[in-house]
Simulated assay, not measured.
Amino acid sequence: MNYRKKKIKVGISTGDINGIGIEIFLKVCRKKKLLDFFTPVLFGSTKLCSYYKKILNIEVNNILGIKNLKEIIDYKINVLNIWKEDIRFDLIKINHESGKYPISSLKKATKALKDGKIDVLVTAPVNKKWMNIKEFYFLGHTEYLQNILDGESLMLMIHETLKIALVTHHIPLKNVSSELTIKKIVKSIKILHQSLKIDFSIEKPKIAILGCNPHSGENGLLGEEEKTKIKPAINILFQDQGILVFGPYSPDGFFGNNSYKNFDAVLAMYHDQGLIPFKTLTFNEGVNFTAGLSHIRTSPDHGVAYDIAKKGIANENSFKEAIFNAIKIFKNRKEYMKIISSKSRLL
């Protein structure tokens, strides 16, 4: 695809306006050459950008405020002004009052994504506590997007050298065992397998499954989930459907001896089991991708980082990777559909 003829429109939600989201957005977009490859559309306000430009002393000259998405212009940093009230961003505190802004941004951006006004969505980090207000009942981006878009979502952390998906994610550790079922594990593997084929152009994905308990249960001595839930799910998919899925593996040894390098992706049973090795191995380069949905959404692999916000020292690399991974996945999906269409015409 020639991006100068048709550049992909990358919608971007602000994330928590007291976090580092706008800083990393501005740092990425100030590199003018990057705008040759995509057209950014921030769902927020030009005043918010001006505020951060001033306090961080970031030189960005090609910001364009727009009133509707028909006004988007290539080679500009398009900012859709979605807040009508006059906001003093320097007076906004970290609380439920500030939480309404990332919610508004996310809702507008998601609608634009669903309506085809933007091609992909990149979400800046949010604080789940301050977003959990009466008008917004979702724990995070993944849960909200699952409710709005078509498909079945799967949280998939991606990097050139490692991809890790999660069966369960934003739940207390004490609830993991009860949430794990053969049906849920099978569904997660199927979504992961399909995503690897469609979104990452891997013809025959090879997937590793992690155990739930220490030492993968030690044959039931340290837990039964491997025997009663995980192995049956693997057998269903490997023996009955021919999916190349193996395990369950003990996570410590699996990552300790670099066994993950022998697989196209890994499925973890719960949040920290997958996120700790992923962030240890790829931090500031990894990306959070919501696989399995009808539309593409990515985000950086870090949080709001209040401790360094407004200091100008935030690393924008993961945000940049989120943008370019979204673009790559968009292209891969288009190419996959072309191949499927060509095969159908030959039948």
Rank of each mutant, 00 (worst) to 15 (best):
K129Q: 07
L139C: 12
E135V: 13
N127E: 13
T168A: 06
L139K: 13
V126P: 01
I164Y: 03
H141K: 02
T142Q: 00
L156R: 01
V126W: 04
N127W: 02
L162Q: 11
E160T: 14
Q146F: 00
D150W: 04
F138A: 02
K128T: 08
I148Y: 02
E143C: 10
G151R: 05
T161P: 01
W130F: 15
W130Q: 05
N127F: 09
Q146H: 08
L166C: 01
F138L: 11
E135G: 14
L149Y: 12
N127D: 14
A124S: 13
G151M: 12
M131P: 01
A165E: 07
E160A: 12
V122R: 00
L145Q: 05
F138N: 00
T168S: 11
L154A: 12
I164K: 03
A165T: 07
I133L: 07
T168N: 04
S153L: 12
H141M: 05
M157L: 15
T142I: 05
E160F: 04
T168V: 02
A165W: 08
N147Y: 15
Y137M: 11
L149S: 13
I164F: 11
L166T: 07
L145F: 13
G151K: 06
K128Q: 08
P125T: 08
V126I: 15
H159S: 14
Q146G: 11
W130M: 11
E160G: 06
L156C: 05
M157P: 02
A165P: 01
E152C: 11
V126H: 03
V126F: 05
L145H: 12
A124P: 05
L156M: 13
D150M: 11
